[in-house]
Simulated scan of single mutants.
Amino acid sequence: MAEKPTSILMLSLGGTIAMTSGRDAGVVPTLTAEQLIAAVPGLADTGIDVHVHTFRQLPGASLEFDDLTALAALIADRTTTGGIDGVVVTQGTDTIEETAYLLDLLHTGDAPVVVTGAMRNPTIAGADGPANVLAAIRTAGSPTARGLGTLVVLADEIHAAGQVRKTHSTSGGTFRSPNTGPLGHVVEGTVRLLARPLHRMTVPMETATRVPRVGLYTVTLGDDGLLLTGAHGLDGLVVAGLGVGHVPRHLVEKLAALATRIPVVLASRTGAGPVLASTYGFPGSESDLQRRGLVGAGFLDPYKARILLWTLLAADAGPDSIAAAFAAAGGTGDPTRWPWPTPSQQPEMQHA
């Protein structure tokens, strides 16, 4: 009896990978999932059975939380009852670092979810979309990727959703994981993992009770806090602080007052390295702010911190759960204190 081929579902959301010339100047997302998969060379050689579905046709900048939660629900359905072994999501690279992390938090199954896109659209020489899709399909169909949650695959590099960042506006090698490096590579059509991600931490979708408004405030030199006046309509706020988590002393009282009403998370705007807890002691230092009620984001960058805070608030997590979740996800606390049962308990970054 012949072995059942691996079945992959490819869901397209639009983005540069799906763009063609518009009526006016510039390209717009028009290609369907069927058209994208038809342009992938060597797909038949993989032996993978690929099903396709055009879920959205939007630029990455226009995706909303509603789009992603609906996508996560579809993925859960197809991977639990639809006979699908893995999922590939194609979208615009503008928001991949955020959307992939949201999917990672919402995806509780073992089937790999792989997000990819393109930096060069199909109308120009050297378009990278077909190669990225092929690498993503190979990764989603690989048994070694099972249980790893959501991954980001571009330029034959495999990154953990919770670590990856877009680091250059135009380079084909834009996606990097500054704190950890990539998990592995696709080499000669084979998935080669060099490390495994941190403990999987997921938020069950059924716990979602509301749609919160979560802001991101980036601190700058000489900041007088005027823009913080808009934070009073938020359910939560992430502050991208200077260095290891510092702000000008003029902001301290304003942030402390906000922290009495809503969760305020302190991240570093640098994009790599952690927010500290007890090294500096001046007004506006990391220790001063956390004593006043701000929650440290650990190694999470501001964009990831905002996604995590949004997900926690959507699940109606309280202050203690939020603090425990950030300590676990940010790599500065006990991962077993995650507020919900985790799908698996993997050791913290096992290297091959």
Score class of each variant (00 low, 15 high):
T123M: 10
T167I: 01
L251I: 09
L148H: 09
T220E: 13
V219R: 04
V27W: 00
A2F: 14
G82C: 10
D85G: 11
P204I: 04
D156E: 07
L43I: 07
V164C: 00
G222V: 09
A240L: 09
T80E: 15
G83Y: 03
V87K: 03
D316G: 07
S7H: 15
L228F: 04
L193N: 15
Y101V: 04
D85C: 11
Q345R: 14
D94C: 05
G26K: 09
G236K: 04
P29R: 01
A127I: 11
D235N: 14
N179C: 15
L154P: 00
V113A: 00
P283V: 13
A240K: 14
P283A: 13
A272C: 03
L103M: 01
W338F: 10
S278D: 11
D85E: 10
G149K: 00
L308C: 03
G273I: 06
G42W: 12
G298P: 05
I322T: 10
P339G: 06
A39Q: 04
A140F: 11
V113P: 00
A305C: 11
G189N: 09
L74M: 01
G42F: 14
H185T: 10
M1R: 06
G189F: 12
V247W: 08
T229F: 09
R261K: 06
T116D: 07
L58A: 07
V113F: 08
Q91E: 12
L242V: 13
L74S: 00
T95F: 07
D288A: 10
V115S: 03
S177H: 02
T270H: 02
A315P: 06
T30F: 13
G236H: 13
P212F: 02
D128K: 01
T90C: 03
E157A: 08
M205E: 09
L71F: 04
A76N: 08
T95I: 03
A70L: 01
L68I: 08
K254Q: 15
A136L: 03
N132D: 15
P29E: 00
G284S: 13
H53D: 12
A195P: 07
L9S: 08
D94E: 13
V28D: 11
S7P: 13
L216N: 05
A305E: 04
R176I: 08
T190D: 14
R306Q: 10
E97T: 02
T220A: 06
R120I: 05
G222W: 01
A267S: 02
A38I: 10
A297R: 08
V265M: 02
V186L: 10
L276D: 14
Q163Y: 02
A257D: 07
T123E: 14
T209C: 12
T167C: 03
A118N: 01
T123V: 11
R192D: 05
A136R: 13
T170Y: 09
G83C: 03
L183S: 02
I37Q: 02
H199R: 12
R261C: 10
T16M: 11
A72F: 03
T336Q: 08
